[in-house]
Simulated scan of single mutants.
Amino acid sequence: MANTNIRLSLALDACSSEIPLSGALIVNAKNDADYSKLGQATCIQWFKPTCDRLMEIGLKSLQNFTTINSFALVEITRSKPQSLGLIAKAFDALSENSILMIDGNKTDGIESHLKTLRKLFKIEGIISKSHGKIFWIKKATRPQILDQWVQGLEPVKIEKDYKTKAGIFSANHIDKASSLLLKCLPKHLGGIGADLGAGWGYLSNELLKTNDKIKSICLVEADWNALHCAKLNINDSRAKFEWTDATQHKNVKYDFIIMNPPFHQTRKAEPDIGKSFIIQASELLTPKGQLWMVANRQLAYETTLDTCFTSVNSITETPQFKVINALRPKKQIFR
């Protein structure tokens, strides 16, 4: 794995005389990066596990831009509209003549951002290292196009009038796997439920619209931006919202859980994430509770399901996905 800390360290050393002792802003801060040269910086981050880690090492973590800063670093995301919006917001949050650094890997599109920014600003420096680039500019005259970039961070309507944001999962359309799961959910689901990894709220909202037996459903989501959209999308007092890592969620026991668990945080498949969701679901359900989940067909979750539940049933399969219903968590029965 590329060591992006070297790239950042070299860039900060190159600008050492202009790096403030305080007042730095790090946008989309990473939990494995070394920001020690930036002192007591303020971070902008939306993924709850990363926020928790940043706070553990003594950094302040926010979800919105709230202050004027004397230095800013933007770690780009894989979403170009989101990254451009964050660059514009960081620019606006800087005092005049302060440095704005933009860092990222080639696979995340850093070359494209460098090309775009070069047309608008003087590039003060560039360092290529560890399969990526970091470059920096100084705040000067504000190009009008930054208004469009900022607007690109606002919620937009997609099909069925759902609102989403750039950078969140399935931002441009209703996820096919979630749509398949919804078609398979029984009409008799009732009681207290949870939606683990709820995203922008599609599954929960559709379920609440058609089922008055549900007393409440807790949407558990680690992405603050996605959960913000879920709150915009659901107008039902039975919906509860919790910004947390689903595998760390602790609450009352649930009668049912629905989920379309993530299977990667980078570009590489990570089936252990889905397995941890299954284990967590078994611990959160009542002894007679049931899990309804959808997953990519090739992901081998069956062994974990059999370990955690007394009954596991394949409901349907397509060339891409599979829907599974698991009943009666073993941990509850044999406790």
Results as ranks from 00 to 15, higher is better:
I258M: 08
S204N: 02
L189E: 03
L232E: 04
F263Q: 05
I168K: 00
E159L: 05
I214W: 01
I234C: 05
L219Y: 04
W149T: 04
V252S: 11
L146G: 04
H228W: 05
G197F: 05
K139Y: 09
K139D: 11
H188P: 00
L208I: 03
A177H: 03
C229A: 13
Q148Y: 07
H264N: 15
N211E: 00
N205H: 13
F263R: 02
K215L: 15
Q265K: 08
L219K: 07
L182N: 08
I217W: 03
H264V: 12
D161W: 14
K176S: 10
V252I: 09
T244Y: 03
T247E: 08
Q148K: 11
A226S: 13
S216K: 12
H249I: 00
E242Q: 11
A194N: 05
W149E: 12
Y202D: 07
P261H: 07
T210H: 13
E159I: 09
G191A: 12
Q144I: 14
C184R: 15
L189S: 04
L196R: 02
V156Y: 14
K163T: 05
G197P: 02
M259F: 06
K250M: 06
F135G: 02
A222V: 05
Q248M: 13
Q265R: 15
I158H: 06
A230N: 04
P155K: 08
A239H: 09
A171K: 13
A177L: 01
K139N: 06
G201F: 00
V156P: 00
I257E: 11
V156G: 00
E159G: 14
D212L: 10
A140D: 02
A177D: 03
Y162S: 06
C229L: 02
D161H: 15
K187L: 15
Q144N: 15
A194D: 14
D175F: 09
L153S: 13
D223F: 00
S216N: 05
A198Y: 02
Q144T: 15
A194T: 02
C184D: 01
T210P: 01
T266Y: 06
Q151Y: 09
A198F: 00
F256T: 11
S216H: 03
N211Q: 04
L208P: 01
L208F: 09
N260S: 08
K250D: 03
D212S: 14
R238M: 06
E154R: 13
E242Y: 11
C184E: 06
G201S: 05
Q151A: 12
I192N: 08
N225C: 01
S204W: 04
L203C: 05
W200V: 07
H264C: 11
G167L: 10
K176W: 12
K176V: 09
K165L: 06
G193T: 07
D223P: 00
Y162F: 15
I134F: 01
W136M: 02
P261I: 14
A194I: 01
Q151F: 09
S179I: 02
S179R: 09
E206T: 06
T210Y: 01
T164L: 00
P155M: 12
F263T: 11
